[in-house]
């Protein structure tokens, strides 16, 4: 076994809460979220950046938490799926995803919802192609993507802006 470099202290904010944590260098943000903070809404389906299930938003941008070192998250603002609904009120994206049947087994859902949220924040009226480019890294086996796309289209026709 390789010798250990000790844990290092980091401060980061997850869903608006500040945390101080001591982590070993090889620990990923995904592991911090799931194991230390017990925010298990962020999923691992491959661990190698090929499925999008572990997507979280860092400073509003979608990133793969399985390929992000915890030590690289010092002082960053991280939003996970648990931080989206405020006080139990679902966001519009979340509501429409449910209404349109865009959730089945739900394992890809957190990543897809966060990537969609980030897209709609960055681009108020994304084209079909832009939607697909934003979600091309998110594998979903259950829905065939039809109802996911339908839900996003509905959010757009509602003229809803994600910035609130």
């Amino acid at each position: 076994m390789k010798k250990k470099q000790g844990r290092q202290l980091i401060e980061l904010a997850v869903n608006g809460e500040a945390y101080e944590l001591a982590e070993e260098p090889q620990v990923t943000l995904l592991e911090v979220l799931r194991n230390d903070l017990e925010l298990t809404g962020t999923k691992e389906s491959c661990g190698t950046g090929e499925c999008g299930a572990c997507t979280v938003l860092i400073d509003g941008e979608p990133v793969l938490s399985c390929l992000t070192l915890a030590l690289d998250c010092r002082d960053l603002d991280i939003l996970t799926i648990e931080g989206l609904a405020k006080g139990g009120d679902l966001t519009h994206v979340q509501e429409i995803f449910l209404e349109r049947g865009a959730v089945q087994c739900g394992f890809c859902t957190p990543g897809v919802v966060l990537a969609t949220t980030a897209l709609l924040k960055a681009t108020s009226r994304p084209t079909d192609y832009e939607i697909k480019k934003a979600l091309e890294g998110h594998l979903c086996r259950c829905t065939g993507y039809n109802k996911i796309v339908e839900a996003i289209d509905k959010v757009l026709t509602d003229g809803y802006l994600v910035n609130e």
Partner: peptide, 11 residues
């Protein structure tokens, strides 16, 4: 999957 151990340096 997890990463092997290493020493971390920030640059």
């Amino acid at each position: 999957m997890h990463l092997p151990r290493f020493t971390y340096k920030k640059s």
